[in-house]
Every structure is written in C-alpha cells, then in structure tokens.
Design a protein around this nucleic acid. Structure first.
Lengths: 211, 211
DNA sequence: TTGAAAAACGGACCCGGGGTCCGTATCGTC
DNA sequence: GACGATACGGACCCCGGGTCCGTTTTTCAA
C-alpha cells in the first residue's frame, strides 16, 4: 500500500516508525502530557528534527494518529452498511453514530484526551470535529420536531468528550457497557423529545448577570 | 469584608492586587494562554515570588478568580429565591441552574476557558465541577422517569463547556440570547423525555471495536 | 557505474514559561 | 526601637516544544 508519493522511502519508514512508537507510548503512559516529543523520537529511534519535519508540530502528530485510528469508522459511516451507513433511518443512525464515537474514545482514551486538550487551541476548530458535527447535524435535521439541530449536535457530541469519558471510566470506574447504555439512553431521550412539541422554547427568563 | 485571618496586611493587599490584575488581563487578552504568570505579576506590580506564594500555582490563581466570580451565583443557588434557590420545583430549577451557569460562562469566557483547559488536568476533578454535578444530580433525581441522573447531569453540564460556549459565541457568532434559548430548549427536551417511558434503554447493539 | 543535486537525518541548540530560592524589606509585637 | 516572624521580588533553574545546520542517504541522469 504505497502512501506518500514523491517521498523518499526512508522518510516514509521514519514516518511510520514514529506513528507506531507514538501510538504505543500514548497507550502505555498514564497521562498524555507526560509523553514528550523527545520520548516519541527516542522510542521511534529517530531524531527530533525528523519527527518535526514529518508532522509539523505536536498537534500534527496527534492529528495524524487520530485520523489513522478513525479511518475504519469513517469508512463505515460514509459507505458502510447499517446501522452506521447512510442508508440507516435517522432515528436509528444517530444513536449508532454516537455509540461508535463513544466506543472509539473508550478504545483510544489517552489519544483522544491528548488531542482534545493539548491539541493546540479549541477542539472545535479541528476538522474532524467539524466532520462529526456536520454529519450529525444533517442526520438530526431529518428528524422532525427537534428544535435546533446544530446546537443539539454540539450538545450530543459534548456528551462524548474525551475527558468526560476518561473521568467516568478511569476515575469513577463505570464499566464500559454501562457508559454506553447511559449514553444510548440519554440520546434516546433527546430524540424522543421531538415527538412532543412542534417548536418549543424561544423565550427565556430575564436575567441580569453580574458583569 | 476582612478575608484572610492571620495574614499580614501587605500580603492581603498583594493578593487582591494580583486578583484584580489577573481579572483585567484575562478579560483583555484574546486567548488565556498568552496571559503569562510574569504578565500577571508585572500588571499587579508584584514579584513572581509573591504571586506564587499567594496562590501556589497557575491553577490556584485561576481557581481563586473563578470562585470569587462565582460567589454570587453560589449564594443565589444555595440560599436564594426562585428560580435558582432550593425552594424551586425541580422541573423549573434545572433549566434555571443551567442558564445561570451558561450566563456565567458567557460573562467570563476567557476565565472559564483558562480554567477548564489549562487548569491542571481534567476539569472533572475540580471541586467546583463536583459541586455543580452533585447539585444538578440531586435535583434531577427528584424528577421521576429520568434514566440515570448522574450521567444526565454530566451530559447537561457538558453542553455548557467553556470551549463550546467560546466556539459558538466567539467563532460562529451566535448571539448570546440565541445560545441561551438553544440550551433552554435542549434542556426542556431532555427533561420532557422522562414523561414518556419509565426506564428506557438498557440493551445496546453489539459492537466489536477495532482495538 | 558514478557523481552530484535533492531530500532527509539527528541532535545540539534556542526560547519562553512555570515554578523555586534566598537575601532583603516590611510588619507587628513587646 | 529592637527583634522575630512574615512577606517581598527577581535572578535563577528546569523542562519541553520547536529550529538549525553540518552530515548522510537517496535518487537520477549521464
């Protein structure tokens, strides 16, 4: 599987060595922030210069790792069978998407954590977030009765934030399947609410904040 | 209002100078991470040593600022009148609480952002989060039909995350009241879903993740 | 095959920011 | 006013991300 065209083969080997080493390191170490770039370089048997030339900066490395790991799910979502694929009816697809995302973060806790917090500024500017949000939004839009699909998409995605997942699984020690069930239940609730009212909300109580 | 007992008055003056300076800086500067400790010290007319003795570390300063700002809301929630106070019926209090929190983050975007991301590890270990979560959880518990109040509380709080708020208001330029309305609507939906089923969810589709 | 230009390598180096240390200044008490 | 206790401040240390450049490897044309 030839990857980078017009790249020297030693460059490609380095790149892959780094990817593998970083993956291993993030999986092994407790906290993402004590995986240093020098560590990664050393573990990959490569100089720091090489590492930074290949990925630009720390965020670049994280992104590359993340995308690589996410690829199968992306495929399944874009062109796969039910319940992730495009042919799935919205009410079924939304929970499936969120469950898939949750599972991904459960399986790649440290990595997701590293990307979302250290990833150079807001996670909301990352294009992988953009992708999930756009997708989820458009699927939600096909469900009648939901108030604001853009915001709802944000809110649902927020329920799968890496640090929340880490907190639940790593600190509170909630078992994996329990978290999945809770999220599923929450999503169900949100979707079900659409059944009740045509277009709720609108006015909100008067409020005079301190500032 | 005498604050710290058994502290020398110059210490108190320094402490307050720092608090004020930091507050101003975080409000003025675009991104929280380009407010440096040295900046704060300089702006307060104080040495770095003083600053660190007073607050321990960066996270400590952020926490102190945050708590100070949050104090009025805390009061209103613990011993205040409706709709924030304890006498409010749950179905009404939950949206009020979340709206108050949202407003707070809208009014203190940079600060909340700084605390949540740079605040030394997971925001979920911070005791102010703990407080909100415990409170929200207990109020949710009084509403029959909601699946798992602990998780629901997390999920609702996640919808007010500082970086999401910042994204919506600062990037997408959604007007303040719109965001409030959207959140309100979302919360309404979540609460309403309890009306439908006694104890939903439970089983979740089989899934074999990559790892 | 070869030789030279292009591309990649690697680690010494730089820089900026969080946090510490300790000699000096201030406070508070007797 | 003198002395112990406390706070001050900024020079200093450390560590991690990112850069630079002399050296090595690859590639390709002659």
């Amino acid at each position: 599987m030839p990857e980078r065209r017009s790249s020297r083969k030693d460059a490609i080997r380095s790149r892959e060595a780094v990817l593998a080493a970083a993956d291993a390191l993030f999986a092994r170490r407790e906290s993402p922030e004590d995986v240093t770039m020098a560590d990664v370089a050393a573990a990959a048997g490569v100089g720091k210069g090489t590492l930074f030339r290949a990925f630009g900066d720390r965020a670049g490395l994280l992104r590359a790792l993340y995308e690589a790991r996410l690829e199968p799910i992306r495929q399944a979502v874009e062109t796969g069978p039910q319940p992730l694929g495009p042919a799935t009816p919205p009410r079924e697809r939304v929970p499936a998407l969120l469950d898939a995302l949750l599972c991904f973060k459960l399986d790649n806790r440290r990595l997701a954590l590293a990307l979302e917090e250290g990833g150079g500024g807001s996670p909301y500017r990352a294009e992988h977030y953009e992708r999930w949000h756009t997708l989820l939004r458009s699927v939600l839009e096909q469900i009648p009765g939901l108030p604001d699909s853009a915001f709802t998409a944000h809110a649902l995605l927020a329920a799968t934030r890496a640090d929340l997942v880490e907190h639940l699984v790593g600190e509170v020690r909630v078992p994996r399947d329990r978290v999945r069930a809770q999220l599923a239940s929450f999503v169900t609730g949100v979707l079900a609410s659409g059944r009740l009212h045509g277009s709720p909300a609108g006015e909100v109580a008067e409020k005079k904040p301190s500032s």
